[in-house]
């Protein structure tokens, strides 16, 4: 079909480099938190993972809307890629949160509104794949998945704002008025957010490319059989 794109290779290299720098920054440059100690460092990747999760679901909803309007297969492939990446990073977010919660809250898991709404969000996107599996006709599968990606995304804002609506024990680090971080911490935090966003773009490109190649292979196979 096509050769490995040069821009993608550059993006790969940039991602690896940024990840290495971010890791060094988190462990060497960011100051030790006064009360929480070293475990606070998981925060930089915890928030970044959840950010990528939300971003993935947003991209999926947008791709779904564009698919419904245009009907080209590319947008369906992009949507699946975005949901997959969003799902994986949301799970990473839950696991890293647990690692932080064990020493700080003295438990791996608690029935806090934030934790529950995030888990429900993950269940929505697991249901997304069950829906895809349940429908055989490719056109209909793509349309229904697009509709569900849009409907499912409606509950994501609640996840994000649940921390403000409910009485939650989950910390709010970024508010509209101030960020409760020292300048150094803020630099590292912003850098890790940026790094994960680049990582997201890289993975999205790879996964979309894989999806397109798989679709191409399928058409070739059909042609051989006919």
């Amino acid at each position: 079909m096509q050769k490995y794109p040069k821009t993608l290779l550059l993006l790969d290299l940039a991602t690896v480099l940024l990840l290495a720098v971010a890791t060094v920054l988190v462990f060497a440059y960011a100051p030790l938190e006064r009360t929480m100690g070293a475990v606070q460092k998981v925060f930089y990747f915890h928030v970044a993972s959840n950010w990528v999760g939300m971003l993935g679901f947003l991209v999926a909803a947008v791709a779904g809307a564009v698919y419904l309007v245009k009907g080209t297969r590319f947008w369906d492939v992009l949507e699946v890629a975005a949901v997959e990446i969003g799902l994986v990073f949301s799970l990473i977010g839950i696991v890293t949160g647990s690692i932080w919660a064990r020493p700080i809250w003295n438990t791996w898991w608690t029935w806090d509104a934030r934790l529950v709404t995030v888990t429900i969000m993950v269940l929505i996107y697991i249901a997304y794949f069950l829906l895809r599996q349940g429908i055989d006709d490719p056109g209909r599968r793509a349309r229904y998945a697009a509709v569900y990606a849009i409907v499912g995304f409606l509950s994501v804002p609640l996840t994000f704002f649940s921390i403000r609506l409910f009485q939650s024990i989950h910390p709010v680090v970024i508010t509209s008025t101030k960020a409760q971080l020292s300048p150094r911490m803020k630099t590292v935090f912003m850098f890790s957010l940026f790094t994960y966003t680049v990582l997201f773009a890289d993975l999205l490109w790879h996964r979309t490319r894989l999806g397109q190649l798989a679709a191409h292979l399928e058409t070739l196979r059909q042609k051989m059989l006919d």
Binding site: T117, I120, M121, L123, I124, A127, L130, L131, G134, I135, D136, R140, Y144, V147, Y148, V151, G152, L154, S155, L158
Partner: peptide, 21 residues
């Protein structure tokens, strides 16, 4: 949507309950 799927009766609660939260 669920009515068109192979697993129709099973699929609806799985799709609906998390969205309706």
């Amino acid at each position: 949507m669920a009515a068109q799927a192979r697993t129709r009766d099973m699929l609806l609660p799985l799709l609906l309950f998390p969205v309706i939260i």
